[in-house]
């Protein structure tokens, strides 16, 4: 049993080194293990059913020790894109960028230009929240438009027996285990959570949304 654990540990290390990890953790060589690596994206109806909450996580697989010194990068813009007319081109963006210990949110607002390059829409609706430090109670803010914001380290909400999936793909196993082993257990991410009234992102119907990290 002990030997198996050691083997599993070794294979987990090998996976972290050579393969790409789900959900979007370490998904591609250019962003793996950088401050712009998106790990996950969620969008769901808020506790207030008139709102949608967006969660954008970056910098995955942080151990508790690594989390104590983890920071958001002031050169990395996290941009939530919202398409309201089903052409998969953003009609609105919510931009999040850190400055001096605070996370600044701009939008939802129509961007000056769509696509791969962005400028910060600094005249748009602004929401500012102190970045929560490791170990602190979550600091949240609500602005006068009803937008809620949070930024700081959180438990990685993603769960997956990625080690076994990789073993199956490698031909070293033929099935998942039951119970499985959550590869993301005990790890943290740097998380940005913003909740906005549905009326600001189309009101009704279906939106298409995705998150981008963009570097200056």
């Amino acid at each position: 049993m002990k030997k198996m654990k050691i083997l599993l540990g070794a294979s987990a290390l090998a996976i972290a080194g050579f393969l790409m990890v789900a959900a979007d953790h370490i998904d591609a060589p250019d962003v793996a293990s950088t401050s712009s690596d998106i790990t996950d994206f969620y969008a769901f109806q808020g506790q207030n059913e008139n709102n949608i909450a967006f969660v954008a996580n970056v910098q995955g697989l942080l151990s508790p020790m690594a989390t104590t010194s983890a920071t958001f990068d002031e050169n990395v813009l996290v941009e939530i894109n919202i398409d309201t007319n089903n052409d998969n081109v953003e009609d609105l963006v919510i931009q999040a960028i850190p400055r001096n210990g605070k996370m600044y949110f701009f939008g939802p607002t129509a961007p000056t230009a769509t696509g791969l390059n962005s400028i910060i829409m600094k005249d748009a609706t602004q929401t500012v929240v102190d970045i929560t430090a490791y170990g602190e109670i979550a600091k949240v803010t609500t602005n006068s438009n009803g937008i809620k914001a949070f930024a700081g380290p959180r438990d990685d909400p993603f769960f997956f027996d990625f080690a076994q999936y990789s073993a199956i793909l490698a031909g070293d196993a033929t099935s998942f285990n039951n119970p499985g082993d959550d590869t993301f257990s005990g790890t943290n991410v740097m998380s940005i959570v913003v909740e906005v009234p549905k009326s600001m992102i189309g009101g009704s119907g279906t939106i298409n949304t995705w998150v981008e990290s963009k570097r200056k």
Partner: peptide, 26 residues
């Protein structure tokens, strides 16, 4: 509190990573 105009938000930010649904790129 300092307004954004006192902070530097200038420049162009170029795409590094993106994601919609989970695990698709992976």
């Amino acid at each position: 509190t300092p307004t954004p105009t006192t902070l530097d938000f200038s420049g162009t930010y170029n795409q590094a990573d993106q994601m919609g649904r989970p695990a698709v790129n992976t």
